[in-house]
Design a protein around this nucleic acid. Sequence first.
DNA 1: CAGTGGTCTAGACCACTAT
DNA 2: TAGTGGTCTAGACCACTGG
Lengths: 236, 236
Amino acid sequence: MLKYQQIAEEIEKYIEENALQQGDKLPVLETLMTHFEVSKSTITKSLDLLEKKGVVFQVRGSGIFVRRHKRKGYISLLSNQGFKKDLEDYKITSEVIELEVRKPTQEAAHNLNISLDDEVYYVKRVRYIQEQTLCLEESYYNKSIVPYLNNEIVTESIFNYIKEGLGLKVGFSDIYLHMDKLSEEEAAYLGLENGAPKLLVESIFHLTNGQPFNFSKVTYNYQQSQFFIQANSHFS
Amino acid sequence: MLKYQQIAEEIEKYIEENALQQGDKLPVLETLMTHFEVSKSTITKSLDLLEKKGVVFQVRGSGIFVRRHKRKGYISLLSNQGFKKDLEDYKITSEVIELEVRKPTQEAAHNLNISLDDEVYYVKRVRYIQEQTLCLEESYYNKSIVPYLNNEIVTESIFNYIKEGLGLKVGFSDIYLHMDKLSEEEAAYLGLENGAPKLLVESIFHLTNGQPFNFSKVTYNYQQSQFFIQANSHFS
DNA sequence: CAGTGGTCTAGACCACTAT
DNA sequence: TAGTGGTCTAGACCACTGG
């Protein structure tokens, strides 16, 4: 593991273990440099990483401070990792409705940047939180990148398998949100009434080399789901 | 303006003007270094900035590539700048319902980190897109940071005034999303039926020094609003 | 004006990709 | 294995904050 990642982890662990609160001040750069025995730029890189993750914020001329959000039970829209981490205090389970190799829909082909003749793994599942329905998920995996899936993998964490099992490196993702009313079928899966509020989250996940490998459409139960984002100001 | 920001802007402009598409390759680092006559780290810093903004992605051993999203008419949840930029092809207007100095609600006081005895500017407005209702916004500004607002400012871009007029520097923000059904009052303002789907977006905006100066609750018209996020993978 | 973070450089060396 | 991006260093100098 790289130095700056290692250091970032240690600083994050330090914040966690000492239960530091928003606004608490970290040691100054000079101190961190000598403590970790690295150059200034390396420490800076670690802190930039933590800043991107929303763990700290840096104020020129003043110091480095802890950033926290106060609310619990929210799903991070940025985490890229499913919500296992955000909701680790809750019991999350999955029921697989469908799993098969098929041709992509036009929409899926377009978003995955493949032809209608290529093959995809289609996965449909309902996810539960504390025995309540959380969401209905339809997902398309480019089969030339993810050549094999089975029921066991799909019941557990698919992304974990992709990273650990296949050794693929997940890069960036594009996420689109829409609101609407639930269709009869969706309402049935989620145990809600027809026409209830619906949040549809469409995501396109790419490998680090820019290739899209997954397109998914997730319909959330409006009673069980709330989301958060920590935004930074790199905007002019 | 700093070198690396300047360079980032020029690269972005170059991409824009030449209408480069997702996956198009930019010149290699060496070329960029000599062209802009700066060191490698400066170019790297520019590219890291563009990567954060979702404009490019870098692949080790391969190159620097353009990143684009395909869909138009979506509001960026990360832009921190209202949606003026995302929806610049559309006509956005505001109607101010209420504007006054008052004591904060408990909720506002908590989120702004002030006491119930402190004062806030309370702003309530409806925003329109192409003559259709887009959202209903309730916003609380810490008066000790934003000491004055008037109808004119509030009808235009409040954030612009805060930055240009007051010289404040806007930093990070925390954003929370909830779904629900519209109340009767909300439905009336938005011209929708009672009980229609509701997306509530709560945001807390901070200055670069970490001080929260605005807490806002925005209720969107589900028929007019869709959102997007470009996420990066700085997550282990 | 002392303290603290940010920018920028020049260069050595490392790690991944594509051929 | 050549090409390309990523890490890391040591140090000079700049810019902002706060007493």
